[in-house]
Structures are given as C-alpha cells and as structure tokens.
C-alpha cells in the first residue's frame, strides 16, 4: 500500500481531533450565543467572535499533530518525506471541509435565515465575508492552511532543535515585531502604510494572495526541519 496514503489513513483514525472537536467547540459556542441572543434581544447590535475558536484550534492542532504522530510513524518505518506529504494532504482535506462548512453556515445566516431568525451575526462577519461565496471559501481555505502550517513549523523547529530552537525562533520573531514599528516611525512611513492598506485591503480576500507564499514557506521550512529530525 502507498505509504503516503497510509499516513493519511493514520490521521483519519483520529477524526475526533482533526474535525469533530473544533466543530463541537464552535457549535456549542454558537448554541450558547443563540440562546443568549434570544433572551437578551437585539443581537444585531454586536458581532460575536465565537467562530474564531476554530482558527485558534487549527493553529494549535498544527503543533500537536506532529508531537502525537511523528514519533509513532517513524517508529513504524515511515519515511520523513512520506510523513510530511501525508500530514499535509490530511490538513488540505480538513481545511477544505472546514472552509466549505464555514461559508455554508455564513450563507445560511446572512441569506437564508436572516441571522437564525433573530438577526444574529455569528458566522457572517463584515470584512471576513465579502464577495462571492466561492471566493470566500478559497480565502478561508488559505487562512486555515496558513494557521495549520504556522503551528506545524513551530512544532518542527522544536522537534529539530529542541528548546534552544524555540528560544532563537521566538527571539527573532520578537525582534521583527519590535523593530518594524520602530523603523516605520523613524522613517516616518506610517501614513504611507495606512493609505496603502485603506486602498488595497478592503476585505480578507485581499490578504489571500499573501497567504500563499506564507503557506509555501512554512511548509518547505517544516519539511527541511523534519528531514533532519530524530525520534
């Protein structure tokens, strides 16, 4: 049997972690919001952020998956390359399903039920849900993939370089986030950036082209780490 497919099937044995749990959290959250909305009234006056639990979850699952399954797969004689390909394929399936469901629920909320009968905004939010549904689905798919691989590369660096790798990685990240605003202030470029954002970033869709290189970078980086990782 093809060993990449075997890795996908291994992940598929854990549908609970990959699919059911994030949706359970999101839907329980939704039910609570719905009940509150009915009792408090006027839910259309605020936007809830409950749906973002799924995005946080996907980021964390990118980190946990590696820790849970990499030592097992290698112990069963799986190549590092096959593990990476199979895990990536699984994350593509799950991101596609999740994105499609999220946009379906968003359409149900905004178009078909007028906010579940009480004008609730839970799945359909301004900025995030603009443009045609197919475009929203692609954007959400890319966002979910970005988050998964961001988590995955962090776990890969940890697997490859241990705690020292984490210190270096987060120190660099901190420096970038600390110095970029400083430099922008020093060269007095904030206004330019503000104008550019206002002109170009109207919705989440406009960020989608930036997510593609991010996914590619995190994916290739993870593979480079895993190739030299030991268990």
């Amino acid at each position: 049997m093809n060993r990449v497919a075997g890795v996908v099937r291994m992940h598929g044995r854990d549908k609970w972690t990959w699919l059911y749990l994030p949706w359970a959290i999101c839907l329980v959250n939704f039910a609570a919001t719905l009940i509150l909305g009915v009792f408090i009234g006027e839910p259309d006056r605020f936007n809830t952020g409950g749906v973002f639990s799924i995005f946080v979850y996907v980021f964390i699952s990118g980190m946990i998956t590696l820790k849970q399954t990499f030592p097992f797969a290698l112990g069963m004689g799986i190549r590092r390359a096959d593990y990476f390909l199979g895990t990536s394929a699984m994350s593509v399936f799950v991101s596609a399903i999740t994105a499609a469901l999220l946009i379906l629920l968003s359409a149900a909320e905004a178009r078909w039920t007028d906010g579940w009968g009480i004008r609730l905004h839970y799945f359909h939010l301004p900025f995030f849900h603009e443009g045609p549904e197919w475009q929203q689905t692609v954007t959400f798919f890319l966002l979910l993939q970005s988050l998964f691989f961001a988590g995955f590369i962090i776990a890969s660096i940890h697997r490859r370089f241990g705690r020292a790798g984490m210190y270096v990685f987060f120190s660099l990240l901190f420096l970038i986030f600390a110095f970029t605003p400083l430099l922008l202030s020093y060269y007095d470029r904030w206004d330019d950036i503000g104008r550019w954002v206002q002109a170009n970033i109207r919705s989440l869709n406009d960020l989608a082209p930036w997510m593609v290189p991010l996914i590619g970078l995190c994916g290739l980086g993870s593979y480079a780490m895993l190739r030299r990782s030991t268990v």
Binding site: G6, R9, M10, R13, D14, W16, T17, Q68, T69, P71, F72, G75, M76, V231
Partner: peptide, 14 residues
Amino acid sequence: KYPETFRIRDVLET
C-alpha cells in the same frame, strides 16, 4: 511513543 488518542485497535490497524 503512540498517539494518545489512539486505542490499541487503532495502533494495530495503522
């Protein structure tokens, strides 16, 4: 190490 969420059956099938 084995995935924590796996049952013995899952490990053997895998």
